[in-house]
């Protein structure tokens, strides 16, 4: 730790950075560049190419130009999938992040049994993709399931939470909020990275808890909030597993949980229209990249970096 002590001693001495770190960057990025060239690039480029073809998976692709892209805009289920996905993303991502941040703040420090709480709260995220979990959802959210039994106790008539087209998507959003484990963990890690010296300084200045939170915790946590926002957004647009499990892969009832990726998967692997599926994927990429770019632009106004 000697280095860090030295660093501390010389803290605050700003120096002019060298013009560029090209060589060092080449070294540090070598694995990443190799990965890009060897692993990532080909599937990316190939799927772009395939999006301009009629490709059944079972036979060689045929170039058909932009037909796949124009076809999307005449496909009613494509629009249904878009609607479902956008609704899901814009409702569940903010809710999930809020839940994750709230729990992370509660579980940050100063309590007995923290490890157990954190682990318990992370558990649903562990179970998410298990085959067995489909049966559980039926028993919890079914017409005669746990939730409706509780409601009946209070004299409320329940519904089929995952089997009724009007409620299935809402249930999935609640389920998603419930698996806030991953962003919670990242928030926890982020909270722990805020140097205590800042709080000490603030205390000396007589700042209260609320002011410390608003003045230190929140601004210093913004890079992590930003990270979670960007990644959860990217992830939510590609949501697949939960709808797949709950609807048995159909996106049902009546396409009410037809997530974009689920529809794309059906097209690629059940209808053998991988060309169309690839076009849908690239359309999704444009949408998500656009939103991410907006996110990065907007981040100028609210994300605080210490560097």
């Amino acid at each position: 730790m000697a280095v860090i002590q030295e660093v501390a001693r010389t803290r605050g001495t700003k120096t002019e950075r060298r013009k560029g770190d090209g060589k060092a960057a080449a070294v540090f990025l070598a694995p990443w560049f190799a990965g890009l060239a060897l692993i990532t690039a080909f599937p990316l480029v190939a799927s772009l190419y395939l999006s301009f073809t009629d490709y059944s998976l079972l036979a060689a692709p045929n170039w058909i130009g932009i037909d796949n892209y124009t076809r999307m805009f005449t496909d009613a289920r494509f629009f249904q999938a878009l609607e479902v996905t956008f609704t899901y993303v814009f409702v569940s991502v903010p809710l999930q992040l809020a839940a994750a941040l709230a729990l992370a703040l509660v579980l940050d420090k100063g309590m007995r049994g923290l490890a157990l709480y954190r682990s318990a709260f992370y558990l649903p995220s562990l179970l998410g993709g298990s085959v067995a979990i489909a049966i559980l959802w039926r028993q919890v959210f079914g017409s005669d399931g746990l939730i409706n039994q509780v409601l009946a106790f209070f004299g409320v008539q329940g519904v089929g939470w995952v089997s009724h087209p009007d409620y299935a998507l809402g249930t999935l959003m609640v389920l998603n909020v419930w698996t806030f484990g991953a962003p919670m963990v990242i928030f926890l890690a982020g909270l722990r990275q805020i140097p205590v010296m800042y709080y000490e300084a603030a205390s000396i200045d007589g700042a209260g808890k609320v002011r410390q939170f608003l003045g230190i915790t929140l601004p210093l946590l913004t890079p992590i909030v930003f990270f979670n926002l960007v990644l959860q957004l990217i992830g939510a647009f590609q949501s697949f597993t939960q709808a797949y499990i709950v609807s048995g892969g159909t996106g049902g009832p009546v396409d009410s949980t037809l997530f974009y990726t689920l529809y794309l998967y059906q097209k690629g692997f059940a209808s053998y229209e991988m060309g169309y599926a690839s076009a849908m994927a690239w359309f999704l990429l444009l949408v998500v990249a656009g939103m991410t770019a907006v996110n990065f632009l907007a981040s100028k106004f609210w994300v605080f970096y210490d560097d």
Binding site: Q193, P195, L220, F226
Partner: peptide
């Protein structure tokens, strides 16, 4: 994101050293 959260003074100083 985490690296950027580390005050730059630390590595600037180390660089000087």
């Amino acid at each position: 994101q985490f690296f950027r959260g580390i005050p730059r003074e630390f590595d600037e100083a180390a660089r000087l050293d």
